[in-house]
Design a binder for these strands. Structure first.
Lengths: 246, 246
DNA sequence: GGTATGTTTTTGTCAGGACAATTGGACAAG
DNA sequence: CTTGTCCAATTGTCCTGACAAAAACATACC
């Protein structure tokens, strides 16, 4: 019944053992050797076969259940989840999404300023009084057609931004490079109707549907690094996510 | 520096110990005795004080980090995250806001049928050939004003539905009662503009913005139980979520 | 034939211990 | 004053072991 799983464990690797198991199972699911609905070996057997302890296996399983690839049931076993349901909603950026999809994103910088934080932004980012912000708007296109209009505020005591780097690189890429480790983001997704300016920028018509997204991102030290307000052409973008019952 | 935390552990309770710790810390954060940014005691100390093992404490912390209430850093400690973000996390949607404002949601059933599954639905739910579906549309209102138009398909080999119960009870309530344990849901959020029929049902104007959501839900045995397509008035609803970097 | 009642399988919870990796600060060296 | 080095604190990883709880299945009994 249970499918034997071939995973290589490299004990000299710097990658934690449990994560090697995660990668192994993830890979097996992706390349089809673990079909959806298959029952895995039980934890104890798997642990013995890989010469790992049961807690290590369980830690790996926990991660996979959390990311929605496996389903566990006491007394029954662990199954690969239905293949319709898959992946998503990581803390990623539009830029990452597009690159992953193999589309070449391009960005044009519509405005850029370095200013004292407006009151509302100061509150949103919980800024000390003396910290200023970068404020800029960008237009992101993929495959030649405009996709998103993005307005962002970034505190200036963490990273130094300039127009040139924003033209060529993604914001999250730049922040990560500056040593920012994102931990949390809070976002709200809604809808609106394109006004004249938005329609023109996005090469669509006033009155067409737009997806709106506001996001505030927090780094590992608890600072609110960035907040932004984005609009996407609804005919070209939607948010996909997998929710896991805990 | 670290704040001493008073949590009661009841070893005779059926609630797992680690979850009692989760509840305790959650409570302390919510009622303000653990202010945002506070550093917790370190894991070992906390474990000793509560007379629990470190793995148990860690399991609790894992859950709290996952749900976005805590942030950990090796060599440094564990902190309560910014209250700004937390506030958003609690008001999870405008719908909740409405409920909290004392406006009771109500539902009316607009259509109901029990039919063989259309091809597209059969595929979405991975249905065997002989399974039929319930197909119905509902209108959800809050405080007297319409909020959402919901169209759903449910496979008929898991639960028996009728018009009467759908008028008075929520769909998920009915499914849970029938013994369905949800584990996963995949959803897609986008935007559109209201057509004539939608506008009329939602008491708004054609051409106004709507938030769209398609969802497919999976139970603990891996079956796709339900799929639905909902539209919300954008001026009354948005999706709010907290993403956690893993 | 149907209904209890065990029995087995499997995941869930919990303990205690050991060492590794990272961070931040103190302190010394240049 | 800057840079490098070491140390202490703290979380991260991994192990062994044990028992509880739930589910599925087989068996015995009426």
């Amino acid at each position: 019944m249970s499918t034997p799983l071939s995973i290589k464990i490299d004990r000299s690797s710097p990658i934690p053992l449990y994560h090697q198991v995660v990668q192994g199972i993830e890979g097996a699911i992706r390349d089809g050797s673990l079909a959806s609905g298959t029952r895995l070996e039980n934890e104890i057997e798997l642990a013995q076969r890989l010469r790992l302890s049961r807690p290590t296996i369980r830690k790996a399983m926990d991660d996979l259940v959390q990311s929605g690839l496996l389903v566990r049931k006491r007394g029954v076993g662990t199954q690969v989840v239905s293949s319709q349901i898959r992946r998503h909603l990581e803390l990623s950026s539009l830029n990452d999404d597009l690159e992953r999809a193999g589309k070449k994103p391009s960005t044009s910088l519509l405005s850029f300023e370095h200013i004292p934080a407006p009151e509302q932004i100061q509150e949103l980012l919980s800024l000390p009084k003396d910290v200023s912000v970068y404020h800029f708007t960008r237009l992101r296109s993929a495959g030649g057609s405009p996709l998103a209009l993005m307005e962002n505020w970034v505190r200036d005591d963490i990273v130094e931004l300039d127009e040139k780097s924003l033209r060529t690189r993604g914001l999250y890429e730049l922040l990560r490079e500056a040593g920012v480790n994102f931990r949390l983001a809070q976002q709200r997704i809604g809808a609106t109707i394109a006004d004249g300016a938005q329609a023109e920028a996005l090469d669509t018509e006033a009155g067409s549907a737009l997806v709106t997204m506001q996001r505030t991102a927090v780094d590992d030290t608890g600072r609110n690094v960035e907040t932004g307000s984005h609009v996407y052409r609804a005919d070209a973008y939607s948010f996909e996510m997998t929710l896991v019952q805990r």
